[in-house]
Amino acid sequence: MVSALEIKHVSKTFKNDQESILVLKDLHLTVNDGEFVSIIGPSGCGKSTLLKLIAGLDLEFDGKIIVGNHQVSGPSKDRGFIFQEHRLFPWLNVENNISGNLSLKNQDTRKRVDDLIALVKLKGFERVYPRQLSGGMSQRVAIARALLRNPDVLLLDEPFGALDAFTRTHLQEALLEIWERNKTTMVLVTHDLDESLFLSEKVVVMDAKPGSIKAIVPIEIPYPRSRTSKSFQELRSHILNLLDHHPQDKEDWSI
């Protein structure tokens, strides 16, 4: 199988005047083409930082990140990014937010924007401004905006974390539908274990201080998954055990 994303020996240190903190320590990860991978771990484990490195938003790290056949050297349309907040341009309506710097006068772009609006179920809202949209709708616009650029990999940084439970479930299903249809490689960072189990083929469990990969758990439950099924619950408690288990517990109560 072709790998869409390779992370090789990646370490990252945050430096300020007094000290340097190792946030990511020697990470290795391969994501196959079309695979749905989620990264889960306690807050402060550097999972969002890792995603920023993959996106090319932060280039100060050691090691190599390879997307497709190219080493990451900056942000690119090849790697779509969905932030926790929708980050739509408030002065543009839905369709212009999706098209961004691409002209809607172009027939091809126009058609693809319309298709994407249908895909994220926002027909009728083309001319609406972000302030009039709910959180879930805004996030769907952000997803459509990323998909328009035909990314090789879609990076999602806790995209549904700020939404209410109903909207979240709804968007998780929508994301699965999009993934099954487009087969875009997905890398999802989340702190919601159920979300990662419901969506992904592979769960990367991270450990904090310093951020490192503790385990990679394949989720071999056929889609669509039921959150109440036995296999789901078994994997759930397995990963919870992994997350709880601290071999080198240092009584560290820093907040």
Partner: peptide, 10 residues
């Protein structure tokens, strides 16, 4: 935060 978006969208 919007600058990051503009960078990613090239």
């Amino acid at each position: 935060k919007l600058y990051d978006v503009a960078r990613i969208l090239e």
